[in-house]
Simulated assay, not measured.
Amino acid sequence: MSLQLGQIAPDFEQDSTEGPIRFHDWLGEAWGVLFSHPKNFTPVCTTELGEVARLKPEWDKRGVKPLGLSVDPLSAHGEWSRDIAETQGHALNFPLLADADGRVARLYGMIHPESDPTLTVRAVYVIDPAKRIRLVLTYPPSSGRNFAEILRAIDSLQLTDAEKVATPVNWNPGQPVIIPASLSDAEAGQRYPQGWRTLRPYLRVVDLAAQD
């Protein structure tokens, strides 16, 4: 059975480039992004890991800890890490799991036999500080991920947790958001004294920045 939103992310212990990791303990009170790669020394994976390293200030700003996974052994990660630094301009600054026995990959359903029975797909799990799975993305091995979108989605999750709103299509931080239908106009008036636009009774748009 595949993992679903709201479930507790399975705990595990596995070797990594920064030593053994027990996942829940390592995550602590932070948000986490667990993402898998098909194989070491492959071109798309090399670009992705360099990008995650480049984005360290963005992860840190949001309280997010990235954790990569490859089904290659730990001995292969060192040489590949050098390749990543030389070709992408950013050395690894986050741990990369060495899931050579596939324990974590199987636990998280990262191997899709109809795609390839031996390689992991490009899976992404965003996990909150309560260890609950909040977002799941799956890309095929041939398509590199857009980590700007993953950051945007985390921004949405963190905002909607804090403000009890929803974000509309193509939302970016600082843009108006949607008042949930579960909130009456009277309740919304107390929460958003700056007012809002009612496009339909079920579609109310508020600018949170106007509160400042």
Rank of each mutant, 00 (worst) to 15 (best):
M1C: 04
M1N: 13
S2K: 15
S2C: 06
L5P: 04
G6P: 08
G6W: 12
I8C: 08
A9C: 11
P10N: 11
D11E: 06
E13W: 00
S16Q: 05
T17C: 04
T17H: 04
E18T: 14
P20W: 06
I21C: 08
H24L: 09
H24R: 14
W26V: 10
L27V: 09
L27R: 11
G28L: 05
A30F: 13
A30L: 10
H37P: 03
K39T: 10
N40R: 03
N40K: 01
T46S: 08
T47M: 11
T47K: 13
E51P: 11
R54D: 07
K56L: 08
P57I: 01
P57D: 01
W59R: 02
D60S: 10
D60G: 05
R62V: 10
R62E: 06
G63K: 03
V64R: 03
K65Q: 06
L67D: 03
G68Y: 12
G68V: 12
L69A: 11
S70K: 03
V71I: 12
D72H: 03
P73V: 05
P73F: 01
L74Y: 02
S75Y: 09
A76I: 00
A76D: 15
G78D: 13
W80T: 07
W80N: 02
S81V: 05
S81P: 05
D83L: 03
A85D: 07
T87G: 00
G89Y: 03
G89Q: 10
H90S: 13
A91M: 10
N93A: 06
N93H: 08
P95E: 05
P95A: 10
L96K: 06
L96G: 06
L97S: 09
D101E: 08
G102E: 05
R103G: 12
A105P: 03
R106L: 12
L107I: 01
H112C: 10
S115N: 15
P117T: 06
T118P: 00
L119N: 07
V126R: 00
I127P: 04
D128R: 09
D128Q: 09
K131W: 00
L135G: 00
V136T: 14
T138D: 11
P140Q: 04
P140K: 01
S143K: 14
G144R: 02
G144F: 01
F147H: 08
E149L: 13
L151T: 11
A153T: 14
D155W: 02
D155L: 08
S156M: 05
L157H: 07
L157I: 13
Q158D: 08
Q158V: 12
D161S: 15
V165A: 08
P168I: 04
P168W: 00
V169L: 11
W171Q: 02
W171I: 04
N172C: 07
P173F: 12
G174F: 03
Q175L: 15
Q175D: 15
I179G: 05
P180M: 02
L183H: 01
L183G: 03
L183D: 05
S184E: 04
D185K: 14
A188R: 02
A188C: 04
A188Q: 07
R191H: 04
Y192S: 06
G195Y: 01
W196H: 09
P201R: 11
P201A: 09
P201E: 09
Y202S: 14
L203Y: 02
R204H: 01
R204M: 02
V205M: 03
V206N: 04
V206A: 08
D207G: 07
D207R: 04
L208W: 07
A209D: 13
A209M: 13
Q211M: 15
D212K: 15
